[in-house]
């Protein structure tokens, strides 16, 4: 992993991609809490996520993963909201 980091750091383009994957909601462990840093609103799906109150600075928790691995459920403001992994990708977080 360290080796990978060093090499990636030299490539600004790859660094952006790696940072993005590392900070995505999907990188959280089950039960882990995080603060939303950004929703990359690019599609109507991201728009839906925003309308559910999942926006910048909101605290979320990855609380369930379906038995077959997808979708996932996150806890926001006391409510459990399910979304597919493909739909969760745009949610950028910072673990707390």
């Amino acid at each position: 992993m360290v080796f990978l980091r060093v090499r990636v750091d030299k490539d600004p383009f790859l660094r952006v991609i790696l940072n993005r994957t590392l900070s995505s909601l999907l990188s959280l462990k089950l039960g882990q809490k995080a603060r939303v840093t950004e929703i990359r609103a690019e599609s109507h799906i991201d728009q839906r996520i925003l309308s559910l109150g999942i926006g910048a600075n909101v605290i979320i928790q990855l609380s369930k993963v379906a038995p077959l691995g997808d979708p996932i459920a996150i806890e926001v403001d006391g409510a459990l909201i399910m979304l597919r992994k493909s739909e969760a990708q745009g949610i950028q977080v910072e673990p707390i």
Binding site: H44, I45, R48, I49, L52, K64, P71, A73, A79, L80, I81, M82, L83, R84, E87
Partner: peptide
């Protein structure tokens, strides 16, 4: 037509 996102509350 566009699929609705499968985002819903449990």
């Amino acid at each position: 037509t566009k699929s609705q996102p499968f985002v819903m509350e449990l």
